[in-house]
Write a protein that binds this DNA or RNA. Sequence first.
DNA 1: CGCTTTTGACCTGCGC
DNA 2: GCGCAGGTCAAAAGCG
Length: 301
Amino acid sequence: MSDEHRNPSYYYDPFQSSHFSSAYNDHPFMSFTDCLQGSGDYNSLATTFGLSPSTSEVLSSVEYGHQKQELGGGSESTNHNPATPNSSISSSSTEAGGEEDSSKGRRLETQLKESEDGGESSKKQSKSKKKGEKREREPRFAFMTKSEVDHLEDGYRWRKYGQKAVKNSPYPRSYYRCTTQKCTVKKRVERSFQDPSIVITTYEGQHNHPIPATLRGSGAGMFTTSMFAAPTTAIPGYSNPQEMMFQVPHMMNQGGGNFAYNPQALTSTHHHHHQQQYNQGPPDYGLLQDIVPSMFFKQEP
DNA sequence: CGCTTTTGACCTGCGC
DNA sequence: GCGCAGGTCAAAAGCG
């Protein structure tokens, strides 16, 4: 009773059409947390994993921002996640941010021309965004967690700004925004309709500020190598889970200089203590986007 | 009293 | 072009 997830068979990724089993053997050097924190920013991720509920376990993580995701969508119908009670990552993938996914509410904020002419009836949100304006989408990172509570505490303060029903799921999706001024990080939470016990949290953006406080002991420390005690890699071409794992940061940089990935830290046995340097990482703009997606997202069904 | 949540309206991209 | 689904806003309600 514990070797279920040892099967490297492909399982469907609820987030995309990708189905692969990732595996991050716990290397003596780096843990995911270390990776994240050491890299400088995206401590949101790191801390994110420090979920407070004792019943929460990270099952899988996905990062995207390329195409429209369908969390909890139809693709999930085949989600046979071998959710192991041992808190292990089932699958993870990433996507660089670059396109708009669906609706970028960038329009308002300046609602011009709302008086006459419009017809008056229109209350708000009548925006005319600039034409040549391309809204960059920030990288996102999603992961599944087994938890009873929807909103997992990660040390940051969030304000809920919306909730919508998900297409193929009876469970709604909640939208949160970091309340810290200047911080544009958003996160959405939804429950897997297949496994109500699983919560899918998606972070978007990066915190450019330290964690407010009140980070219980359960915080950024639990995400250690043990969490990544995963079986094997199923990604052709990547015998080392590390490799693909470390591709992620690259892609994230793409989004706008987050997740400053330090190859040295990752390969170094002694990654000294870094202090959180928020989003100061130079936009690495790696083209990994072209590479990673292909492997993270098992194309074609 | 200030902040968070709730909730309906509105916006936008995409598929048909 | 229309409708759907996803995402966001903001006013009102709740809560400490």
